[in-house]
Amino acid sequence: MPEVGPAQGGNDKERKHVPQHETGGAPAHEVRDFLLRRSEQIAQRWADEPLFRTVFTVSREEAVEAGKAVVDALAQVADSQRVEDPDAAGFTGVREQLARMGAARSRAGLSTTQVAAELAALRPPVENLLVADLEQEAPERLRECSTVLSVLMGTLRLVAMQTALSEIQALTDRQRLQLLEVATPVIKLWDGIVAVPLIGTLDSARSQVVMETLLDAVVDQHARFAILDITGVPTVDSLVAQHLMKTVAAARLMGAECVVSGIRPAIAQTIVHLGLDLGTVKTRASLADALGYCLHELGANIVNATPDGAGRR
């Protein structure tokens, strides 16, 4: 699908109204030529801007090199006449570099808005150069070219912000996965009794992980009883209750009995107010109660040790 950008709009206009323009070519190509011609000067000026100066601290040459890479990318995009398209092929080469720069600025404590402002500050130097370069051109032409350049710089900003956002997204996804792994340990309490202390809000993804790890543990440990401790779950709504009941049902199908423990008075009230039917689920107030119940079911007797019988079981 062809992009309908100002570059092509300008091109059409030119063909219609001023077909014999002396310079010829679309404004985008004019901008491309300008970028390629002045790439060194632009990069030098950018190197003085806070964005490049603070990211590339080792040497000025490094900053200039990085600036040149960005200018080249812009020239490529202008060449393909897709100045409004952040997905233009020309940007792929500098995405990583832009991401690195954005990340470095974020680490320095700048907000996204401030980074965007720094990116915006890259435009005036280039525009000044363009104006100086095209002084002898018709004002009409100059305006067209500077519009194209503005759009192009705007797109660069968009690309940089997009890249930064996708980095953040990737980080969030990674951390969510880590949270899933961290938050669901299965503890063996006794021969044939395992427990999962649930902490934090239970959503579908987490409860799925809890269910899988618990059932795997039931198989591994030959557990006849599994205790789901919800002391660390702040609220129980119908969805959480449904997840719990699914886990209990799955454990039962495997031949293990599930006990839900750690139901605080407030949660018990909530469950009753919501009208949730946990009738099929065995519940206990505390983990200790649940363990006592399981031991009793396993046929173990709990005997309070006599004062002089310490160490005996």
Partner: peptide, 26 residues
């Protein structure tokens, strides 16, 4: 019914087949 695998148990529950009348063992 003995020795149901975890994946099978999860699938049955997701299908809504909790088989309440069925005795199970590990």
């Amino acid at each position: 019914v003995a020795g149901m695998r975890p994946a099978v148990a999860i699938t049955l529950v997701e299908l809504g087949l909790t088989l309440p009348g069925l005795r199970t063992a590990l």
